[in-house]
């Protein structure tokens, strides 16, 4: 059986056996308390403005970032963004309670719910958290925020609570273990740092390869 052969080959190469207690304990300890690489100075230095760093890094990667004071302002912000991009006034989102509580119709937006369909023009999701060091949004898949919303429509819009912006990837992983339980993951954790792009033709960067042609992040200060 291939599994047994491969594992015993590995052990032979390492000069180890399957029940080597020290090796098992080493590995278990690393997983129980994961060591971290030193955090980059750009977010670790005392007094760093993490939100400012998050915004500037994300903009550097050709995403648009808007800041609003309260969640009630989200629909209007989306409507004016879509208008500025000559996009239809329509969004689709999942069952996320924050989005469900907002009045999109008042801003003239057509709303659809559920997973993305090929005809959708804009997908809207709520991020689990933000990572300041590279301006990265962390999204978890589920009925509340279906994963296809971030890939199928031409426009992806993400709402991010300012209070959930952390310095590093590791901070977000800690938050994930804390809130979902250690070793438990959703079907997908998506780290998104800009719109879809490619440099496969003549080495020149083109935005909008297969995924979204544009990414809007809305930072909500009161959340």
């Amino acid at each position: 059986m291939s599994r047994r052969d491969i594992l015993s080959n590995i052990r032979r190469s390492l000069g180890a056996n399957a029940n080597d207690k020290a090796r098992l304990e080493n590995a278990a300890a690393r997983i129980a308390t994961p060591p971290r690489a030193t955090a980059p100075q750009r977010v670790a230095a005392p007094g760093t403005d993490l939100v400012a760093c998050f915004v500037s890094e994300l903009e550097r990667q050709l995403a648009t970032v808007k800041t609003v004071a309260r969640p009630e302002e989200i629909p209007l912000e989306i409507a004016s963004y879509l208008r500025s991009q000559n996009q239809p006034q329509a969004v689709r989102f999942g069952t996320d309670p924050l989005l469900a509580s907002l009045d999109f119709a008042a801003s003239g937006l057509e709303v659809n719910n559920g997973r993305a369909e090929p005809s959708d023009t804009a997908g809207l999701s709520v991020a689990f958290g933000g990572i300041a060091e590279t301006g990265t949004l962390a999204l978890l898949s589920g009925a509340d925020n279906p994963v296809t919303l971030g890939f199928l429509p031409d426009t992806h819009i993400t709402v991010i609570a300012q209070s959930r912006i952390r310095a590093t990837y590791e901070d977000i992983f800690a938050m994930l273990r804390n809130e979902k339980g250690a070793g438990t993951m959703p079907r997908t954790l998506n780290l998104i740092s800009g719109p879809s792009r490619t440099a496969d033709i003549g080495g020149r960067i083109v935005i909008g390869a297969h995924g979204p042609r544009r990414l809007l992040a809305i930072v909500v200060r009161s959340l």
């Binding site: 898949s141 009925a143 279906p146 959703p186 998506n190």
Partner: peptide
């Protein structure tokens, strides 16, 4: 732009994946 962590098939209640 995209770094994706995939774990198992879609969960109960997931509309996609």
């Amino acid at each position: 732009s995209y770094t994706t962590f995939s774990t198992g098939p879609r969960r109960a209640g997931d509309p996609d994946g």
